[in-house]
């Protein structure tokens, strides 16, 4: 299926979904006025992708430096979606990147991963 590549805006993250390689990434800041315009296309593509990747390796990198409440809810929904797929047999690895001095982002990663049972979750302090 076709890759989903969306450039970052001031209020939305960069989306790089390379479905062929099984490499997905969200990067930047996320505080859109309307969460559905940003996350609608992301979820649509992700759901279709996860239906057809049984047995494959998928890696999802979250490298976010700031997000608002609706983005947080969307992220939790995404985690649930990923955990469901992992339960069905997709090998999913999630990397949650945070700046070493950003305790908030580190704690959000810890909190959001509480419900993950089947996904391999890594908290990764970014270099420098």
């Amino acid at each position: 299926m076709e890759n989903l590549m969306i450039a970052a805006t001031e209020r939305s993250p960069e989306v790089e979904f390379d479905f062929a390689a099984g490499r997905l990434s969200l990067k930047g800041e996320s505080y859109p006025e309307d969460a559905s315009t940003v996350f609608g296309p992301i979820f649509a593509a992700l759901e279709r992708f996860l239906e057809q990747v049984e047995g494959r390796d998928v890696r999802f990198d979250f490298n976010l430096i700031y997000f608002n409440s609706s983005s947080a809810k969307a992220l939790m929904n995404m985690f649930q979606l990923l955990d469901g797929a992992a339960e069905r047999g997709v090998k999913i690895e999630v990397n949650w990147f945070y700046a070493p001095d950003d305790e908030t982002m580190q704690e959000f990663g810890e909190d959001f991963s509480e419900d993950l049972e089947h996904v391999t979750f890594n908290l990764v302090a970014t270099g420098d």
Binding site: A72, M76, E114
Partner: peptide, 10 residues
């Protein structure tokens, strides 16, 4: 659980 996290985020 989600509500708790959202309250925290907020």
């Amino acid at each position: 659980r989600e509500q708790r996290r959202l309250v925290k985020v907020s």
